[in-house]
């Protein structure tokens, strides 16, 4: 559901078997006693890089829409996002 992958019949068994094999390997992490170890999210020293707050050009609208599967009036066009009431 989270991943929006739309599994089809047969997919569940196929992936369940493969992912279980991978998870068995991954479960070796549970052997480690690491409660006191801090987590690492990134490994280099740069943090909170800021720049001057000055406007600069971004993508213009035509470039941004050039790859859109469907565009209308300068917007991306998508199917309805709400059920009609």
């Amino acid at each position: 559901m989270l991943a929006r992958l739309a599994l089809e019949p047969g997919d569940e068994e196929f992936y369940a078997e493969q992912l279980s094999g991978i998870l068995v390997h991954i479960d070796r992490l549970q052997q480690l006693d690491i409660d006191a170890i801090p987590p690492t999210a990134q490994v280099v020293e740069v943090a909170n890089t800021l720049r001057e707050d000055v406007p600069r050009p971004g993508l213009d609208q035509a470039d941004a829409l050039a790859n859109a599967p469907a565009a209308v009036d300068g917007f991306f066009r998508v199917p309805s996002i709400q059920e009609e009431t």
Binding site: I26, L29, Q30, L32, I34, I37, P38, P39, T40, A41, V43
Partner: peptide
């Protein structure tokens, strides 16, 4: 159980 633990192991590997 998974993501946080993996990040801690990343610390150990570093």
């Amino acid at each position: 159980a998974y993501y946080l633990k993996a990040q801690k192991v990343r610390t150990l590997i570093k």
